[in-house]
Write a protein that binds this DNA or RNA. Structure first.
Lengths: 142, 142
DNA sequence: ACATAAGTGTAGCCAGTGCTTTATTTGAGC
DNA sequence: GCTCAAATAAAGCACTGGCTACACTTATGT
């Protein structure tokens, strides 16, 4: 592999990582709205395991990215784009967990690892995962 | 899932990400030493797709982590710990790529996605991958 | 020895993502 | 309507990890 290709690979991985945080927040805000009708900064912070100021900053970035809207001292809400992203992320998360379980990873571990893995799964890979599971739903385990 | 569990998941993913950069650099420095006898800052930078100052900073962090040693204007070398990490990372990378290919991901895509995925694959999951491939080396494709 | 090019280091800037500390706003209870 | 607790915001710190610009070292060629 040439250095240029290697560099491209790393740059792509870095870009994916940058997106990952936004994806996590969008997904979680979607969850919170579904569960509690609205997403408050405090709830977001609690669930992400960070302090409120950190959550506030993250929301600011999400607003900048056009994924959410919010008004001071009011809840945070997903834009159409944000909601679409949240849905997509959630579906991908499920697929990754299912794939891991299908190849024999214990469910709890699959859930844990998927949190990091999912952000690096390309559309191509996701399709392959789905195709694989359609073909061998239980991976013929045992 | 409780908020605490969710937070723990995210914190774990964040910790994995912090380690990922060190792993990438250690692996690549190992590659360079193997290929060219030594790892120069410029080579590291070129292959990572970053500028030399960035590579220099990364090497400084690696030194702080005890993974490499270096003297000004001389090459960078892995410590025993760094070499062990590089070996481990390289093996894991291969396993992840192979697993992806085994479930039907195109090889080039597998290589690309593995770069990001590998850092989030726990030992448990890695073992499951190996067991899966031992059982179905070609995943019965086609 | 000296000039020059390549490699390396350093300084300073920016953005992201965490933190703590300190206002401010909101909303509930009196 | 005032007070107070909770929620939110704002500001400042630290570290990572990019960058550019500039200084310095090394190696090479004359």
């Amino acid at each position: 592999m040439s250095d240029e290709q290697a560099a491209e690979r790393f740059n792509q991985a870095r870009a994916a990582q940058a997106m990952a945080v936004l994806e996590d927040y969008a997904e979680m805000i979607g969850d919170l709205i579904e569960e509690m009708g609205e997403a408050r900064i405090t709830d977001i912070a609690g669930r992400m395991g960070v302090t409120h100021p950190t959550a506030t900053k993250a929301v600011a970035r999400l607003k900048r990215a056009g994924l959410v809207i919010s008004r001071p001292y009011r809840g945070v809400f997903l834009t159409e784009e944000g909601a679409a992203l949240a849905t997509r992320v959630r579906a991908r998360h499920r697929t990754v967990v299912d794939l891991l379980v299908a190849v024999g990873v214990p469910p709890e571990t699959a859930e844990l690892d998927a949190e990091g893995i999912e952000h690096h799964v390309s559309d191509t890979t996701l399709e392959a995962f789905e195709a694989f599971m359609a073909k061998a739903p239980t991976a013929d385990r045992g």
